[in-house]
Design a protein around this nucleic acid. Sequence first.
DNA 1: AGAACGTATTGACAATCTTCGATGCATATG
DNA 2: CATATGCATCGAAGATTGTCAATACGTTCT
Lengths: 123, 123
Amino acid sequence: MAKTIELHVEERKRGTRCCESLLKLQFDVEEARQLSTDLQALAHPVRLRILDILASNEGVVCVCDLQETLPVKQPTISHHLKLLRDAGLIDCERQGLWAYYFIRRDVLRELGTRVTQGLKALM
Amino acid sequence: MAKTIELHVEERKRGTRCCESLLKLQFDVEEARQLSTDLQALAHPVRLRILDILASNEGVVCVCDLQETLPVKQPTISHHLKLLRDAGLIDCERQGLWAYYFIRRDVLRELGTRVTQGLKALM
DNA sequence: AGAACGTATTGACAATCTTCGATGCATATG
DNA sequence: CATATGCATCGAAGATTGTCAATACGTTCT
């Protein structure tokens, strides 16, 4: 059970020096790193909008469609697509000249679960 | 309903040039930015671990406690604390020499809801 | 084969983020 | 008052990320 601040202050006044308390934790270092990696993959407006577009227009989205909507140039879009692909969140299928991108809902769901569980642990 | 890739390719072959399709969206620009800001606030291992510690040791955590546990120096911890404070996710109460930090579960819950809802929209 | 097109990659630059020594500030203690 | 302590801030350095012009690559169409 959590001690009160007042008790804590008293202990410290009595000479129990600062920082001897063993803190309780829920995440280990690796979990925190993983969760951070998950969040990083999502934490950019362009990437979020790409995911939104892919989620809402399944099967018919090529890079030039994205170019039309997003406020960045084509190499930048390709760059963010690559990051999302590396994270496993999207994939693509080439049809002639075009690359049709799609969302991998299974992977996104796993990530979503990790994020939601992680947040729940803090509340 | 989503068109198939094949139909899309056919249309483009017939001369309907690329990129005339109006994409469907769920997020507007502002929502994407907000969600990205929310995710950024969390997307660092040290900040996640700070939140974890504050969530698990309510009321008795001062900066030197964090220093004991985290792999970065005091100014860096203060820096991350400031970012979290600016995001509204934590706050502190000074008692003499010490600053006792605590988590603002209400704000965290709001952020968690936005994140969870945002993710759900993509699935 | 050659031209046109959609996309990926490269390379350079700019912006942002992370870290920490040095320092300042406020409070407590002798 | 002088000193010690805990924390915040400043300023600089390094690392990472985001952006885009230029270019390369593979495909399609003449």
